[in-house]
Design a protein around this nucleic acid. Structure first.
Length: 959
RNA sequence: GCCCGGGUCGCUCAACGGCAGAAGCAACCGCCUUAAAAGCGGACAAGUGCGGGUUCGAAUCCCGCCCCGGGCACCA
């Protein structure tokens, strides 16, 4: 620093005024100091991170959703949630909690790999560089993370445990009787001892290794299966259902997705469908997210019903359908199978039956030809096309008939793509009178309809005159009588129960529950993911590697790019990058019966794997013996109440993970719970979805975005380079040329200003537009706060030792009371307003008593921690205020001794009177009625009624 | 089409069924300054998307619409 001090520009002024430069110095100093002191280290009750804080204070576990380290760098929208959790964590720390808050990196997966491929650099290099950048950007914001606990999914020390959990899942099965996962060894024992019958009927001892493996694969929670999967040639990998959008494209990259039958790893998440559904009730989550999970799981109760095939050759094949409306069985006038239903080939007769209508045949000479043609057409159709054509039903007659079990009627069987192989049994009974889709199909193919539910309107019972099906669950059944059963006159619910029982008695049906949720496709044909800890022997039987061989490290190879294809090439097939590496794939291992040749699994895990359990590793990141010490897990995540779900106390993130990450993580957590590794039934007890920070996008006349910073507002319009531009609200991002980075804002105003502004701009859960020019408001608040404590000319502390006047004292305690409530409710915007209000009061007052300045500094500390620490230090304290008790309001000072009572006459305000806050209803009424303005307003009218809400309001109703 | 959110001064946002205003931005007027910026101070500003209803009293509760955002959508 220069020694010379010019007269016109005193050095003191320059250094003691709260400018961006001073803020930057203060912020850097405190960030260093927090790091040096380990201020935000949270003590565990045991293990390497054990400390006394764990027993002295109650635990609070605050989490942000696991970010992937973006190569594009952060914009101001990204840290919104991180700032919010930091504010909340700092608040909790000051109210006596042992707070665990950290942030790690979800660094495997498609985004990281795509960025690497784009830049032509190995994903490990780019990902690690991105993590360094992101850590630096976030450190600049002063986030109080316990950096010892920051994990990255790509570290072998982390994914060793991801693989370990995979093995546990692989070596488990779901026991529906005990309703939990159990080790597969216990199932083998039951098979071996005969306690449980072996599927197929042969004794366990007689099965060879391949047969045993096949039997166990049908039970394992992680298993390999040949099944129709979502193949995305443009990405070169298969995808989970959750990663495919409703219109049949990949969520990432928006490429077409095709159905292809491939041998892939699956996770038996369907075994947990009911628990994933039921346990939502234990969670403090937004209803919207719970609803999305419920919809995704899609539990529906109904019945399976068997329809006998009425084949000319007398074959006794049965078609099993799932229906939610068994009560409408009498209305079933035809059947529909999914085009790829396996029974179709067996049922088609050699030629069209007598009297087959032309429209049913698809103009084909034989049923087999019609089926083949239709199947080809259906397979060629993308999901998008199918969606678009949903209203125009297509299909062909198979030439076969089935028998309706309730009335013996012979009904034709069709195939049509509106029936999906993947849902239910892939076959339906069609009740055109009471189902919109069946109605449309029946109209198109001139199929008969029968009304079996009495319409609630005046349309009558003849479906031929209807415009659409009549669908209701609140109506009476009609036209539904057989020789030994009748549903006529019953309500829907009762009719369902009656017919289900009738079907069950005859062994041709049963009540059942069906789910929309399917098993989770878990393998990806990508390089940048966790390798599976699985090897195959020469018979193709998968063998789990022992835990001692973990981690199976990802080999460092140059040829890591996925084999991608023309996005529209439906016939392409995936190739795993790891399979190119022969010396890695072929291994000799001793898995217990001597050294043998094995072949490694060359698929990798999806990027969801690491985020399925990372919340557990934060707790005990250095543990080499276990994924987490049970005592440590119980301390941080165990149920806080009897029967509670347990899990992190707060989880903040975007709503876009409603059915992906949040469903998968819940599933893994429940498996670990069943196997006894965790005490919590759920990973995240409270979930909060933060809104998005939006930004204005300015487009020129061609519709291209122009740089938002170059746009000027004039004459009520927006202009760029003299040309008019349109303004719209959108996301923030480089492509829309409206990105604002936290680095820019920090440089111009400091991190505390940025934090304060982000918290002040609106409620956390609401999306709102960013406005850079409004940031200065938060900056001014901090400057006024600074000046209330420090003389910016001399740097001297200016607080006084005077006793505050009563008004100031009341303002302080009202602020404390309000800020506490707002902090607890995550209403940081109103908390900032209350702090501002108090600070404005002090500014106007002229001098600031120390006894008010100190609690004010403590109150703003969670929001603007650096300036608060600096002022605290200057006020004479030597310790960081991070663990200083948050101010407590004196209830006597929160309420004013007198309040303004509003007196209304017929709801209109006619008078205001000052009354004691403790005034009774009677006294207040008397006072109000005596008020001259009230008497004037009443005039001659009689008083009919007086509503008194002491001490705030009296309403006089004249009669 | 169905299901969630949300419409309050010019803008972002507050308001246990009880005086429409906590706070910030912008514009405006002052103060400070040779001047400008910054800073400081002040005043202005909407009757709560529309139409009904309940109530002594509605931004708030109920019903029906409109607009914006998000999710789901041939799931039997």
């Amino acid at each position: 620093m220069s020694e010379t001090t010019s007269a016109t520009e005193p050095q003191q002024t320059a250094t003691q005024k709260y400018t961006a430069e001073l803020a930057a110095r203060i912020e850097a100093r405190w960030q260093d100091e927090w790091e040096r002191r380990g201020t935000f280290q949270a003590a565990n009750p045991a293990g390497s991170l054990a400390g006394p804080g764990a027993t002295a204070r109650p635990p609070a576990y605050i989490m942000d959703m696991f970010p992937y380290p973006s190569g594009a760098g952060l914009h101001v929208g990204h840290p919104l949630g991180y700032i919010a959790t930091d504010v909340y964590s700092r608040y909790l720390r000051m109210t006596g909690y042992n707070v665990l808050h950290t942030l790690g990196y979800d660094a495997f997966g498609l985004p990281a790999e795509q960025y690497a491929v784009q830049t032509g650099t190995h994903p490990r290099v780019t990902t690690e560089a991105n993590m360094v950048t992101m850590r630096a950007q976030l450190r600049r914001l002063g986030l109080g993370h316990d950096s010892r606990r920051s994990v990255a999914t790509i570290d072998p020390g982390f994914y060793r445990w991801t693989q370990w959990i995979f093995l546990k899942i692989f070596e488990s099965w779901y026991d529906p009787e005990q309703d939990r996962a159990r080790p597969i060894a216990e199932l083998v024992e039951e098979f071996a001892s005969g306690a449980r019958p072996v599927p197929g009927g042969r004794p366990w001892g007689e099965l060879d290794a391949v047969e045993r493996s096949a039997v166990l694969d049908d039970h394992r929670l992680a298993y390999v299966k040949e099944a129709p999967v979502n193949w995305c040639p443009g990405l070169g990998t298969v995808l989970a259902n959750e990663e495919v959008t409703a219109d049949g494209r990949s969520e990432r990259g928006n490429f077409p997705v095709y159905r292809a039958s491939l041998r892939q790893w699956m996770m038996r998440i369907t075994a947990y469908a009911d628990r994933l559904l039921d346990d939502l009730d234990l969670l403090d989550w937004p209803e919207a997210i719970k609803l999305q999970q419920r919809n995704w799981i899609g539990r529906s109760e109904g019945a399976r019903v068997e329809f006998r095939l009425d084949a000319a050759g007398g074959e006794d094949d049965k078609i099993v359908v799932f229906t939610t409306r068994p009560d409408t069985l009498w209305g079933a006038t035809y059947m529909v199978l999914a085009p790829e239903h396996p029974l179709v080939d067996r049922m088609v007769p050699a030629r069209w039956p007598e009297g087959t209508r032309e429209a049913w045949t698809g103009a084909a000479p034989t049923p087999a030809a019609a089926v083949a043609t239709y199947r080809r057409q259906a397979a060629a159709k993308s999901d998008v096309e199918r969606q678009a054509e949903a209203k125009d039903k297509t299909g062909v007659f198979t030439g076969a008939f089935a028998v309706n079990p309730v009335n013996g009627e012979r009904i034709p069987i069709f195939i049509a793509d509106y029936v999906l192989m993947g849902y239910g049994t892939g076959a339906i009974m069609a009740v055109p009178a009471h189902d919109h889709r069946d109605f449309a199909f029946a109209r198109a193919f001139e199929l008969p309809m029968r009304c079996v539910v009495q319409p609630g309107d005046d349309r009558g019972q003849d479906p031929r005159t209807w415009d659409d099906a009549f669908v209701s669950h609140d109506a009476r059944i009609v036209n539904s009588s057989g020789s030994d059963i009748s549903l006529d006159g019953l309500g829907v619910a009762e009719a369902k129960a009656r017919i289900t029982a009738w079907l069950a008695e005859r062994g041709i049906g049963e009540g059942t529950v069906n789910y929309r949720l399917r098993d989770w496709l878990f393998s990806r044909q990508r390089y940048w993911g966790e390798p599976f800890p699985i090897v195959y022997d020469e018979d193709g039987v998968p063998h789990p590697l022992p835990a001692s061989m973990l981690p199976v490290e990802l080999p460092e190879i140059d040829d890591y790019a996925p084999r991608t294809f023309d996005p529209d090439d439906a016939d392409s097939r995936p190739e795993t990058p790891l399979s190119r590496n022969k010396e890695w794939v072929e291994v000799t291992l001793d898995l217990g019966d001597g050294p043998r040749q094995y072949r490694r699994e060359t698929n990798t895990m999806p990027n969801w794997a690491g985020s399925c359990w990372y919340e557990l590793r934060y707790l005990d990141p250095d543990n080499d013996e276990r994924l987490v010490d049970p005592e440590v897990e119980r301390y941080w995540m165990g149920p806080r109440t009897t029967g509670g779900s347990g899990g992190a106390d707060l989880y903040v993130g975007g709503a876009e993970h409603a059915v992906l990450h949040l469903l998968y993580a819940r599933f893994w957590h429940k498996v670990l719970y069943d196997l006894g590794y965790v005490s919590s039934r759920e990973p995240f007890h409270r979930l909060f979805n933060q809104g998005m920070i939006q930004a204005y996008v300015y487009r020129d006349e061609r519709g291209f975005p122009v740089p938002a910073t170059e746009v000027v507002e004039e004459d009520g319009g927006f202009w760029h380079d003299g040309q008019p531009v349109r303004r719209e609200l959108g996301k923030m991002g480089k492509s829309l040329k409206n990105s604002v980075t936290p680095d820019e804002i920090c440089a111009e105003y400091g991190a505390d200003t940025l934090r304060l502004y982000e918290m002040a701009m609106g409620p956390l859960d609401v999306s709102r537009p960013w406005e850079t020019r409004a940031v200065v408001g938060s900056y001014r608040l901090l400057q006024r706060l600074w000046r209330n404590v420090v003389d910016e000319a001399t740097g001297e502390v200016v607080v006084t030792d005077e006793e505050p006047d009563e008004e100031t004292l009341r303002a302080l305690h009202k602020a404390i009371d309000g800020v506490r409530a707002d902090m607890e409710g995550l209403r940081f915007n109103t908390a900032v307003a209350k702090v501002t209000e108090l600070n404005n009061h002090l500014t106007k007052r002229g001098s600031v008593p120390r006894s008010v300045a100190e609690p004010l500094v403590l109150m703003i500390a969670p929001l603007a921690p650096h300036i608060a620490e600096e002022l605290w230090r200057r006020l004479g304290h030597t310790e960081s205020l991070a663990h200083e008790p948050f101010p407590v309001a004196d209830p006597a000072l929160v309420q004013d001794p007198t309040v303004t009572c509003v007196v209304q006459v017929k709801g209109k305000v006619r008078a205001r009177i000052e009354v004691p806050a403790t005034i009774g209803d009677g006294d207040l009424e008397a006072l109000a009625l005596a008020d001259p303005a009230v008497r004037r307003a009443l005039g001659d009218a009689q008083v009919r009624k007086v509503v008194v809400r002491a001490p705030r309001l009296v309403n006089v109703v004249p009669g």
